[in-house]
Nucleic acid binder design. Structure first.
Lengths: 207, 207
DNA sequence: GTCTGTGAAAACATTCACAGCG
DNA sequence: CGCTGTGAATGTTTTCACAGAC
């Protein structure tokens, strides 16, 4: 749970550092990321003591510490599978590289797409996936294929040694417990939001 | 919390319906979505009694019930702001419409992008946002602009009456509590996954 | 026998409240 | 004073376990 908040703290700290802020209190950081000051202090204390009482946290030191906790000191190498519109957008996304990730391989099963150059990488055929992932040291996969192919692609990535993957396909993929999956179907996100839209529009008022 | 799982159940149920399954037990559904059978029964019992003891749940009836709970019986109209690579991919995403959402307006601040046609919608200038959202009955916004513009775009959407938004920008946006935000920065998702990658590779073994 | 619905127990996460450092 | 670190209290979510419907 804490681990899902740390990247958000890190992101805010990087913005603060870019704005030349040197020190921040749990209260101000909390306001920035929408979390209580208590929460931030608890989260951080779970990993050690980083603050100065009476002053706050040093922005750059804390950012570095969080990156360390998350293992972002080491660059992670990504493969994107499926180069439809979404896959292309991800492959070319400039926001990965300065935050610890680098896309190093692209795969698609469509022969018309294989061979294209996207973000200065050539799209490779699925058959080469295992070999290329091993050679390039890819540890994280991004699944951006249609639902029907998502499980097969996942199995292939898992078999090739990927240990975490981000799944954009609208389906829950099965993996062994040693492989972590992040689900990011935009429709699922929207549908949970939709629940809150109901309040305040139907005939019935809240009591 | 439950509300974040319901869309996943709904998604699985739709796949089951497409495969002509008529009835499903909490156990099988749980296996499909990676959740315990207990959990599913608790989640559903929170909203009423939908199952038949000894048999399970009727797939189509349960799917309809969940759609009702989430308010997906009514189609929600979306606006996409920012038509870079990601915005274009989202604007043209075919997966929205059969799951309760329809993109009805596109906005960008770049005059070179305004006027382009994407997914048979014309990109409109930011200035027209308030008026168009009101006219089109848009209740949900998708923010797909760079971090620097995300807060300003959010404010504009909120001022125009949007009640929920999905934020792809790498920044935490502030909104009044009446507006729900879903955060979907891919890098944040990857960074939490990265934490688990550390296990099993550094020098130290777990004890 | 299979599978739901649900209280009771356990685990987990958040908030409170305060001692203590700078 | 302001702000951190943390035990204790509270609240929430998950799991357990079992009674009852089919």
């Amino acid at each position: 749970v804490v681990v899902r908040r740390l990247p958000i703290y890190a992101r805010a700290l990087e913005h603060l550092a870019a704005a030349s802020e040197r020190v921040i209190s749990s209260g101000r950081l909390g306001a920035l990321v929408g979390v209580s000051a208590d929460q931030i202090r608890k989260d951080l204390s779970y990993f050690g003591e980083f603050g100065r009482k009476g002053a706050g946290y040093r922005v750059d030191a804390l950012a570095a510490t969080i990156r360390g906790i998350l293992g972002l000191d080491q660059e992670r190498r990504l493969a994107v599978v499926g180069l439809g519109r979404l896959g292309r957008a991800l492959a070319a996304y400039p926001g990965f590289v300065d935050r610890g990730f680098r896309v190093v391989a692209l795969f698609d099963r469509d022969p018309a797409v294989v061979g294209q150059e996207i973000a200065s990488l050539r799209v490779l055929p699925m058959e080469s996936l295992g070999e290329v992932l091993a050679r390039e040291g890819v540890t994280v996969g991004i699944v951006a294929v249609p639902a029907e192919q998502a499980q097969a692609v996942t199995d292939l990535l898992v078999a090739s040694g990927v240990r975490a993957l981000l799944n954009y396909a609208p389906i829950t993929v099965a993996t062994p417990p040693s492989v972590r999956v992040g689900d990011v179907d935009p429709v699922v996100a929207l549908q949970s939001l939709a629940y809150y839209l109901k309040a305040g529009e139907p005939s019935e008022q809240a009591s």
